[in-house]
Design a protein around this nucleic acid. Structure first.
Lengths: 178, 178
DNA sequence: TCGTCCATGTAACGCGTTACATGATTTG
DNA sequence: CAAATCATGTAACGCGTTACATGGACGA
């Protein structure tokens, strides 16, 4: 079963303590995780799918309000680890925003510092390649673009540089303790 | 008809000179615009839809290779202007990446510097609000997060600050000539 | 007990993705 | 002419979105 980014996030979230769909919706509304939709039509079907494939174990609590909470299974743990090993989409233009950060957090939690440093290395390389490509484009064909387009690309380049910088800081920081 | 981001981009692209689906695919492959899919299954149906609604006018050229190219209609121009006026999704976590930049470029081209400065103002405000929210969160509930999560949020905040900075530079630059 | 919130779902719909299909036209 | 490439589509599928539906628990 091919996990979506949301699937992976859900499996991650119920790992430490079991949570319900409603808990997760609250989380998405109130934290920077909210890049994912908090709509019931997105979360509940995903949870149901994951339970069907036995990557999560659901249990309906009796007493008080009706409430179905989930926890991660061993198979879920394996699936999450497999998701982490999937090759990262090389082209940053195609990655959904926040995906790198999400992978980073899950990986640091699940696989430890050494593996995460390796991941940061890949990300650094991917961003650096992309940056060189854009710089080359701007020096060549892109030079004739209008001012607004050049400005937008400038923002893009600065954003990539920021991410590269962050990667390198993280590599240093995590390398010291692995 | 509610335009998708891709729709708006297509209408914009065929505005200055008429282009075919193939031209646009090439563009998406070779430029930073490639945040959009260059797959035929995405571009051709969208072009067909837009032609059906008469926002684009298609014409099959005779002679040489079979080739259907599109140009913007007056209705297309109006629809694009209407798209620009749609309220920007306030929550930056929900915006697809690159949407602000795309709007900026199209707006600068279609509506001129004064309106674009106003747009940059809104964006600045939205980002600043969001930044304050995250900072508050990090000072409160978020303080107990693990190190990796804090680092990811730190990247998020830095990215927002970069965007705010860019907005203000652009406002200054464009304000001088409007 | 009446409304409001809690909590979970479902149905319809549209778009994007992947994969496949089709011909026509250069190129060697 | 054979092969590669140009150029446009289409069919199946899945996920996310929006909107609607349900029903129990809690507060006034």
């Amino acid at each position: 079963m091919k996990l979506t980014t949301l699937d992976a996030l859900l499996i991650f979230l119920v790992g430490h303590k079991s949570q319900s769909g409603y808990d997760i919706r609250q989380l998405f509304q109130s934290t920077p995780l909210g890049m994912f939709s908090d709509s019931p039509g997105s979360i509940y079907p995903s949870l149901a799918r994951l339970e069907e494939h036995e990557l999560l174990a659901g249990s309906t609590e009796s007493g008080g309000r009706r409430r179905r909470s989930y926890k991660r299974t061993a198979a879920g743990q394996k699936a999450l680890a497999a998701w982490l090993e999937w090759p990262l989409e090389r082209d940053p233009r195609k990655r959904r925003s926040g995906e790198v950060e999400l992978r980073f957090v899950i990986m640091a939690d699940a696989l430890g510092a050494a593996r995460t440093v390796k991941f940061l290395d890949e990300v650094d390389t991917a961003y650096s390649d992309q940056l060189r490509e854009i710089e080359a484009f701007m020096g060549g064909a892109g030079a004739q673009m209008n001012e607004a387009s050049r400005a937008a690309n400038d923002l893009g380049m600065r954003t990539i540089r920021l991410h590269i910088e962050w990667c390198r800081e993280m590599k240093k920081k995590m390398g010291r303790r692995s």
